[in-house]
């Protein structure tokens, strides 16, 4: 674990050594802020829904930018050779980089807590849905980032990595909508709904904490990270 933390620490400081982190954070805060304010003014309801619903989709759009460089850049620069010939396992490398991207997103989400502070000031929001909403957002972020990391291990080109990640994520996101075409075939609809990234999230935003949703996201993350380790290993075999 010490090695993974070492790698995570290095990646985090490298995020903040470029303007990228600040830029992404600013874009995310502005966009979600606009939606939050609009919702609040329109409904006059002390709830975070106006933040949670668009936040998930914005997260999906910006996360590939955060993860795209994690492995792709190392392949391009050749530093992967130094990293993988150090006495660390591939799993430690992958977990370290995943943790770094999680820390980035968590930091960003932490800043959005001020929406909640605003709500406390103007009304009395219900705590439950806010807590499960944030919990869902973290789980969702983990899933999105793990897919981004996987895509980053496929190529040495950061743009390709971001586009691949975005493609996979949008597909997984829209599986739920796809399900509505299968209303006549209930089992197919249920499967598509279950596989979709978005359906589990909306349950949590509604304040429903169901183990099925948590299990879904956790296994999603584990699977994606496992595939990333395999992808990294296959690079050694080629």
């Amino acid at each position: 674990m010490r090695n993974a933390f070492g790698i995570a620490k290095k990646e985090i400081s490298s995020y903040f050594s470029s303007p990228m982190a600040y830029l992404i954070g600013a874009v995310f805060l502005v966009l979600t802020g606009v939606f939050f304010a609009q919702y609040l003014l329109a409904t006059q309801e002390a709830s975070m829904r106006g933040f949670f619903s668009p936040a998930s989709f914005f997260l999906l759009l910006i996360s590939p930018v955060i993860t795209m460089r994690l492995i792709a850049e190392e392949q391009k620069m050749g530093t992967l050779e130094l990293l993988l010939t150090s006495p660390v396992t591939d799993l430690q490398v992958v977990v370290g980089k995943f943790l770094a991207s999680m820390a980035m997103i968590s930091g960003m989400l932490l800043l959005t807590l001020y929406y909640f502070v605003l709500l406390l000031w103007v009304g009395s929001p219900d705590l439950g849905p806010v807590a499960t909403g944030y919990f869902g957002l973290i789980l969702l972020a983990g899933s999105i980032l793990s897919v981004g990391l996987l895509a980053s291990s496929f190529t040495s080109n950061q743009i390709v990595s971001a586009v691949v990640a975005l493609g996979i994520l949008l597909l997984l996101w829209l599986l739920g909508n796809l399900g509505s075409f299968f209303n006549s075939v209930p089992w197919a609809r249920d499967i598509l709904n279950y596989l979709s990234l978005s359906t589990h999230y909306s349950e949590l935003v509604n304040g429903v904490l169901d183990t099925r949703d948590v299990v879904y996201y956790v296994s999603f993350i584990v699977l994606a990270l496992f595939l990333t380790v395999r992808s990294l290993e296959s690079r050694r075999w080629r």
């Binding site: 010490r2 090695n3 070492g6 790698i7 290095k10 400081s13 490298s14 050594s17 470029s18 620069m77 050749g78 530093t79 050779e81 130094l82 990293l83 150090s86 006495p87 660390v88």
Partner: peptide, 19 residues
């Protein structure tokens, strides 16, 4: 190949820890 965005000391610290 080296991490260009790190200082010499930071780079050595990083690899030292990994090893």
């Amino acid at each position: 190949p080296l991490y260009g965005d790190m200082s010499v000391r930071a780079l050595l610290e990083f690899f030292g820890k990994l090893r």
